[in-house]
């Protein structure tokens, strides 16, 4: 049986979450095709997800998790590690400070990026992140701590204070 997805469902999902998924993929990926891959997979998974979500926040957390996992998979992959991306997805920010900060954030090791994004942008607490990332709270704490130390080191104390 051939069945396509409801157009409205597709546009609703994209409208609601595409910016968020884009932000997550921005944290990890520099390649246009990878970003497109993430979009296809995340939204396809969302449309084929059969169980109802308990709440709006449950749905959002689920999508964040799927997106982060896919991004990490792609950023770990053999081809990404061994090939230079041909088309970078460079963004310019309004302020110089913002550009400098984002350069520092993007140069963080992958394992620190998720806590920085989840905590400082989405406002999740350590226990919430522990559930989402399936890691011990202690691990989250120390990752957060190390990420901050790295950023402070790169940006300098003052710029760091202005950033978060």
């Amino acid at each position: 049986m051939i069945q396509t997805f409801d157009d409205k469902k597709i546009s609703d999902a994209l409208e609601k979450y595409s910016d968020m998924v884009r932000r997550i993929s921005y944290m990890y990926l520099r390649n246009k095709h990878d970003v497109e891959d993430v979009f296809q997979e995340v939204f396809l998974k969302l449309l084929t997800y059969e169980k109802p979500f308990e709440s709006e926040s449950h749905e959002k957390a689920w999508i964040i998790r799927v997106a982060i996992n896919k991004c990490k998979d792609l950023s770990k992959s053999f081809w990404r590690k061994n090939t230079q991306s041909l088309e970078g997805v460079e963004l310019t920010f309004n302020k110089k400070e913002e550009s400098e900060l984002m350069d520092a954030v993007l140069s963080l090791p992958v394992k620190y990026k998720d806590v920085i994004y989840l905590h400082y942008y989405e406002g999740y607490s350590v226990p919430e992140m522990s559930v989402m990332l399936n890691q011990k709270e202690n691990t989250i704490y120390s990752n957060l701590h190390r990420a901050r130390a790295l950023l402070k080191n790169t940006l300098g104390e003052y710029a760091y204070e202005q950033s978060f």
Partner: peptide, 27 residues
């Protein structure tokens, strides 16, 4: 700055269109 910078990251129109057409055509 982190928040204001991240707020500027938005899904490109072309990306949304391509994803949408992929989802519409996938059976």
């Amino acid at each position: 700055h982190f928040k204001t910078a991240m707020d500027q990251v938005k899904a490109e129109e072309a990306l949304i269109l391509r994803t949408s057409s992929y989802l519409k055509n996938v059976e």
